[in-house]
């Protein structure tokens, strides 16, 4: 027995009747698989989350620390700004990491060959990883924000959370695109690829104004900040939450994010396809670990 039904017709183009519906089922399979992995590695997730909470708290307490050591600062505003930076970075960082580890994790588990010979287009495979990363990252960021906000008596009466979420959603597309670009690194360099992904992530962290305005950076780093989607995401979300800017006032942030997203996703897919071809030419799709 098998679960496939007998053929009822033959497509004439030689490509068969593999449809968009099949691809969407395949995409749901990628999400399903990652949910199983979260369930099976739940203690890893808990430990990682606790570390992220501790890290976020230690950053946000800096605002109080400055005041306690005699500095003049609007503690509420600074703490909120740092919290937004830490939470948004945790969210975008998770998306980036999941995308970057698309290949590395499969290689480590020994499933890479099975996945790459499955009848699933690579774009659907990668979009499936992106969809899971968005779901997982969002759930984690909301929980992180709730836990950390509990430690601070934050006052954000003007916040426009709707506008902040729209900016975050648009920025997520760009990050998925950049993640796809870095996902290729473990494909072409099994030993060093993941580490190079962390280098790229670290670079974005430094230049994007996660914990400080990008204006404090040297000029050449400010130029790099203009091509980082995180810069615009953080600007927009801070404006929405701290100042209460509505979506209509977010043009300066949304347009660059849309442009980066529109460019990053197809470029990411093209880079990944080239990387996959290189890996298949040089026998680098084998398992390791």
């Amino acid at each position: 027995m098998s679960l496939h039904q007998p053929a009822s017709g033959v497509a004439g183009d030689g490509r068969g009747r593999w449809s968009l519906r099949h691809e969407l089922i395949g995409l749901s399979g990628v999400v399903e698989r990652n949910l199983y992995l979260v369930k099976r590695y739940i203690w890893w997730d808990i430990a990682f989350f606790v570390w992220t909470v501790a890290n976020t708290l230690s950053i946000v307490f800096i605002a109080r620390g400055i005041e306690a050591s005699g500095g003049t600062i609007d503690v509420n505003r600074a703490a909120t700004s740092l919290l937004i930076g830490a939470v948004i970075w945790a969210y975008l960082g998770v998306i980036f990491e999941i995308m970057t580890e698309t290949v590395a994790w499969e290689r480590w588990e020994g499933t890479i060959e099975y996945t790459f010979m499955a009848p699933l287009s690579r774009s659907v495979h990668l979009f499936g990883m992106g969809a899971f990363a968005l779901l997982y990252g969002m759930a984690r960021a909301l929980l992180l924000f709730a836990v950390c906000a509990f430690f601070f008596d934050l006052s954000i009466p003007d916040a426009d959370f709707g506008a902040a979420l729209v900016v975050l959603a648009v920025a997520s597309v760009s990050f998925v695109g950049l993640g796809i670009v870095t996902a290729v690194l473990p494909l072409i360099s099994p030993e060093k690829g993941s580490q190079l992904g962390f280098v790229a992530q670290g670079l974005l962290l430094v230049v994007s104004g996660v914990y400080y305005p990008v204006e404090v950076l040297p000029r050449w780093m400010q130029w790099l900040a203009t091509v980082s989607p995180a810069t615009y995401a953080l600007d927009g979300i801070r404006d929405a939450i701290l100042v209460g800017d509505p979506l209509t006032a977010m043009g300066d942030e949304l347009w660059p994010l849309v442009v980066i997203g529109v460019v990053a996703v197809p470029v990411g897919l093209a880079v990944f396809r080239r990387g996959e071809r290189y890996a298949k030419q040089h026998g680098k799709l084998k398992r390791s670990g």
Partner: peptide
């Protein structure tokens, strides 16, 4: 393909591994 290495996610169960694989094949 069935190879010498079983090619499964080690922490996942047999049913889970088969389930997601079936989705990859449009089931």
């Amino acid at each position: 393909r069935v190879s010498v290495e079983a090619s499964f996610f080690k922490k996942m169960s047999a049913a889970e591994n088969l389930s997601y694989a079936a989705r990859f094949h449009g089931l």
